[in-house]
């Protein structure tokens, strides 16, 4: 009763200075306690993540950073001991190791060439799958299948097989190679250096087409859901204005799906970097698991991780400049 009067006073008599301050205090008190309660409950909800983050991510990250600056030897009371050696592991990776620089450049090149191809392919595939044609559900199911099937150990075996296969039984891309190299000769023979980069890019897509299709499952579905959430009336009004399909794609579809390009880009880059058939990843794992050079392995992993974060940071900054948000 008293509170209701106070509220009335505050609403109708805003100039009754001191009284209104007191009322504000009284009114504020209740929501504050609810907010605090909700904060505590919220922390309880995310406590598994906080625990896991501190124990199984932050702690190992710190250890691995320390290991990368030291020489790790197993045994002893704590299970292993570290002697600080400065940046020895890093200089070894960059200057002594014959493979590291080459593998690092290779995997960066692989990401920078294949990630855009995957994005372009998945966008095209999503646009096609969004059209009506017989058997669409079946085709969608098959497009998404690699996400489920070529994961984990299967992906590793796939590349191992193509490395080992002496016979043509398990080889699939035999003929592709010769076609593209032939095309390269014909095209680049007549062109000057101007277009060769683009031609190389396209030919590379053709060479790695299977890899690209297989890696594009999740991205295709994300683009597809974005396409389906576009309001059809936008297309209708474009039709009435006389837009061609080409114009509609660039003026409507592209801006509307551009936030998804950012999401897919990050997903693709991370996915490419941690693929189990990545040669540098294999080297890092072997250094830790087989030759037990934990310090050296950590140093290589950190260089790799920093390179990846740099690529993600720069590209996300660049892409977010052109992304269009409808709401």
């Amino acid at each position: 009763m008293h509170r209701a009067v106070c509220v009335w006073m505050r609403v109708t008599l805003p100039w009754s200075g001191e009284e209104s301050e007191r009322v504000k205090g009284a009114l504020k008190k209740k929501p504050m306690s609810l907010r605090r309660k909700r904060a505590i409950v919220g922390y309880l909800f995310i406590s598994p993540f906080i625990l896991g983050f501190l124990l199984f991510i932050l702690q190992p990250l710190a250890t691995s950073l320390r290991m990368s600056f030291s020489n790790v030897s197993l045994g002893g009371e704590a299970g292993f001991s570290m002697d600080y050696t400065g940046i020895d592991n890093y200089t070894r990776a960059f200057t002594v190791d014959p493979d590291f620089n080459r593998l690092l450049v290779d995997s960066l090149k692989d990401v920078l060439i294949n990630a855009p191809s995957i994005i372009i392919f998945s966008l095209i595939a999503a646009v096609l799958l969004n059209r009506k044609f017989p058997g669409r559900g079946f085709v969608r199911a098959i497009f998404f299948m690699p996400v489920v099937l070529t994961s984990g150990v299967v992906l590793g075996l796939e590349s191992q097989n193509s490395l080992l296969a002496g016979m043509s039984q398990l080889q699939t891309a035999e003929t592709n190679t010769s076609v593209t190299s032939f095309a390269q000769n014909v095209l680049l023979g007549s062109f000057t250096d101007v277009g060769s980069g683009i031609v190389g890019f396209v030919l590379n897509i053709i060479d790695h087409f299977y890899d690209i299709v297989v890696a594009a499952g999740i991205q295709t579905v994300v683009f597809l859901s974005a396409l389906q959430s576009i309001n059809p009336s936008i297309y209708e009004s474009a039709d009435i204005e006389g837009c061609t399909a080409w114009e509609k794609f660039w003026k409507i579809t592209m801006p509307m799906v551009s936030p998804m390009i950012l999401v897919n880009w990050i997903y693709t880059i991370v996915d490419r970097f941690i693929r189990s058939d990545n040669q540098l990843m294999v080297k890092i794992l072997n250094a830790a698991g087989v030759t037990l050079e934990y310090g050296y392995s950590s140093a290589m992993a950190w260089v790799y991780c920093v390179a990846m974060l740099l690529i993600i940071g720069v590209s996300v900054w660049a892409i977010s400049k052109v992304v269009y948000y409808y709401d």
Partner: peptide, 30 residues
């Protein structure tokens, strides 16, 4: 839920998605 440092924990979640687990897997094993 709204709680203090919510943005920070969300950023840590994104960090967890982005940083490859292979970076610290050796340390995790030890």
């Amino acid at each position: 839920y709204d709680f203090p440092l919510k943005k920070f924990w969300f950023a840590m979640l994104i960090l967890m998605i982005v940083v490859p687990q292979q970076t610290y897997s050796a340390a995790l094993q030890l």
